[in-house]
Amino acid sequence: MSEGERTAYRFQWKDLGDIQKGRPNLGNQTSVAVYRLMQYTMRDVLAAKYSAEEAKIVLILAGKLAGTEFCKNMLDTNLEFGKFIASLQEKLKTLGVGILRIEKADIDTMEFVLTVSEDLDCSGLPMKGETVCEYDEGFIEGILETYTNKQFVVKEIDCWATGDRTCRFSARLKESQ
């Protein structure tokens, strides 16, 4: 199979490189604008080259892969749910990703409602009239699936880009399970 035909992901955490070594002076931090510049230009190119819908799907899948790897490499999946969420909150805050808050968590039915304030992807964006945090949807999906070993559907309900002050997501098990 050629490079262009493969379907399995090959990303590994070590692909992020040795940042300390590579950036001894500039260090580990960059600006939110630079991050958004990359994401929104890539989104634009994907939408133009394929379609807006395809671009969204790619962003969800990329977010999911990132969430999965983030969970595997940065979080302790052996913690009980409350402690796991507390550690995730702390990690997202420390890394400047956003302020995660759980609104509802039903462990029996695996239904969750959570919010991310000061979100890296969207907080402060101009009004677009539609949600834009597809990457976050995938990211949360990846984390939940890695922690629970079950498949989830995560949907953004409210978003800064729709005029809300915080991004709200619902997460539930995929119906086929």
Partner: peptide, 11 residues
């Protein structure tokens, strides 16, 4: 702003 308050209270 009330939705944000609502979200915080739920959390």
């Amino acid at each position: 702003p009330y939705k944000q308050l609502h979200s915080n209270l739920r959390h």
